[in-house]
Every structure is written in structure tokens, then in C-alpha cells.
Simulated scan of single mutants.
Amino acid sequence: MAIQKDQIVSIEYEVNDGTKVVDSNIGGLPLVFMYGRGQIIPGLESAITNMSIGDKADVVVKAEDAYGEYDAAAKQEVPKDQFAGIDLEVGMTLYGQGEDGGTVQVVVQEIGNENVIIDFNHPLAGKELSFLVIVNNIREASAEELMSGIPAENQHDDCCGTDSGTGCGC
């Protein structure tokens, strides 16, 4: 059965940026997502469209279909005092809150005496990615999953299933 919109898909993958493996879940927990909802990079999602359970493929995803082209203008010089209490290092990834309230990831590019240059590009922006992908499972979504867009495998019970209200950062 080929994958169709709003089905729950489970994959194992390994991704290489042309020089090294940058992420892999082979032999670990699969990545579970709802197909057609933009929950994985567009190029990988379109590449697995005609795959079925058990299929394995090597897929190349162009930068524009992954994390986008590198934007040299997506750098910002910020006063160093905004990083008080953080032991900054070049190449360090930091997370903050964007204007829309969402999480923003930046990479420290340069550290000066008074200012820090941060890069808002995704670390894989501008890179063609090579994937080894294996489709582990394809199933129909439940009514609740269709409404929420979140596969049951990715939904978390209150405090990891405990009734006490403790644990899991609660």
C-alpha cells in the first residue's frame, strides 16, 4: 500500500550532508508522522510517496526542498551582554524565543569583545542531503489523530503516564 495523505507513517532513516552522517535513527525508535501535514522536510516527504511497508530507498533531497538555501543576510550582530551567564563558544547552538513566540535556533558564528554574531540559518541550510530511508509502517489515522495532527505514538500522557503529577518535568 503506497502512502496517502493523512496516514500515519513510521520510518527509520540516516541522513548525510555530503561529508558526514548528521542524524540517524536506524535500529532505534522510528520517526512517526502524519503524511501530508508538513511534519518532515518536503523533499523527503515527496520522495517516499510511492513507498510501501518494508521499502528501503536512497533519496537525495536538494537544499531548497530540505532546510532552504543558505541566506547570508540571516546573520545578526547582538550585544554580548545579552548572553550573560552563558559560556559562549563559536559553533554553539542556542535557542530563544522569536517574535511570534516560537522557538528560534541560532548558531554562534563570532565572538567579539562587545558583540556576538549569530546565524539564524538552520545548520543544514544550503546543503543537499542524502537519506537512507526504510518505511516500517503505514496505518490509517484515528479521528483524534486527524483532528490534532499528532500521531498517537507522539502524544504523551500526563507526566509520562503517572497519576501523581510528578516526573517528566511536570
Rank of each mutant, 00 (worst) to 15 (best):
A125K: 03
G38M: 07
V32M: 12
G38C: 00
A74P: 09
G161C: 05
V59C: 06
P30C: 04
D157P: 10
S52I: 04
L132N: 09
N115I: 12
D87Y: 10
V60K: 15
A57R: 15
I138G: 13
E153D: 12
V116S: 08
C168D: 07
A125D: 09
Q97V: 15
I8E: 01
Q7G: 05
D100Y: 03
G38Q: 04
E114C: 01
A152C: 05
K127C: 07
T166N: 11
N154S: 01
G112H: 08
C168T: 01
N16E: 06
G102P: 00
H122E: 11
G91H: 13
Q109T: 14
G28Y: 11
A125L: 11
L29H: 05
D163I: 09
A63P: 00
E64T: 11
G165W: 03
Q105W: 02
E114A: 14
I41R: 05
A84K: 09
P79R: 02
D81F: 11
G126L: 05
P30H: 03
V9R: 10
V90C: 00
I26K: 11
P79Y: 09
I11E: 03
D23T: 00
I41N: 05
D65V: 01
G98V: 04
G91F: 15
T162H: 08
E140P: 00
D158G: 12
A2D: 13
V9H: 04
K20T: 14
A141C: 08
T93L: 12
M1T: 13
T103S: 12
K127H: 14
Q4E: 10
A152Q: 13
G165D: 02
I150W: 04
A66P: 01
D81A: 08
I117N: 10
T166H: 09
V90A: 05
D158C: 06
F120S: 13
M1K: 11
Q155V: 08
I8V: 15
A63N: 02
C170A: 13
P42T: 10
N25A: 01
E114T: 15
I48P: 07
T162N: 13
G98A: 10
D163Y: 10
V135Q: 02
M147S: 14
E128D: 15
G28N: 12
L29Y: 13
D23G: 12
N154I: 00
N137Q: 11
E144Y: 06
V78I: 15
I111G: 03
I26E: 03
L31P: 06
G167Q: 08
S10D: 00
L44C: 06
F120W: 14
N115K: 13
G36Y: 10
V104E: 11
K62V: 15
G169I: 04
Q109N: 14
Q109F: 11
V61W: 00
S10T: 01
M92R: 00
G165V: 01
E110D: 13
Q155P: 02
I41P: 02
G68C: 09
I40N: 08
T103P: 04
Y13T: 07
V108W: 02
S164D: 14
H122C: 10
I26Q: 11
V78Q: 02
A63Y: 06
G43A: 02
R139E: 03
